[in-house]
């Protein structure tokens, strides 16, 4: 079963070249890639990640707004109890910011110099480490451990 990835493009800018090349390369590596389109708000990205039940969300940011956008995405994923979905980033992200992003749970930052093979390997490694989101849910069921549901 193919790895499922959401390629998300937040912000008002239209720099989607990288996101599209990534989408195509991941497809060619046998993954199923959901592309959000441009100009996504963090909420749109999180909703898409949930509905599509992806294993990984890849966020491409070139507008400089990454320190605004990533924290919002991470918080929302956590609020909706889907923080088992891994988040990775790419685009123009200053080196100084990378540790800060990792500290809030972003798994990996692939800067402009990363090759598509680096990206494919990185995603496969992350999924191998954390397991598939839907598999974990089904496993919880098989083990008889109900997924905690504080809202009910």
């Amino acid at each position: 079963m193919p790895i499922k990835v959401l390629v998300a493009k937040p912000g008002l800018d239209g720099h989607d070249r990288g996101a599209k090349i990534v989408a195509r390369a991941l497809r060619d590596a046998g993954m199923e890639v959901v592309y959000t389109g441009l100009h996504q708000t963090p909420e749109m990205i999180v909703n898409a990640a949930i509905q599509e039940d992806v294993d990984v969300v890849g966020v491409s940011i070139l507008s400089g707004a990454h320190m605004t956008i990533f924290p919002k995405i991470m918080t929302m994923l956590s609020d909706r109890e889907v923080d088992d979905i891994a988040v990775v980033g790419g685009g123009v992200i200053q080196e100084d910011d990378i540790p800060k992003l990792k500290a809030i749970g972003v798994r990996e930052i692939f800067n402009a110099e990363a090759s598509t093979q680096d990206l494919i390997d990185g995603i496969e490694r992350i999924v191998a480490e954390t397991g598939r989101a839907s598999t974990r849910s089904a496993q919880a069921l098989a083990d008889g451990t109900r997924v905690p549901d504080p809202a009910r």
Partner: peptide, 21 residues
């Protein structure tokens, strides 16, 4: 970006991008 895309600075879509690029 907000000016380029036709959003005023006080639009919620502009947050984080006002005067940045």
């Amino acid at each position: 970006m907000p000016t380029l895309m036709g959003y005023d600075s006080d639009d919620e879509r502009s947050e984080g991008e006002v005067g940045r690029e």
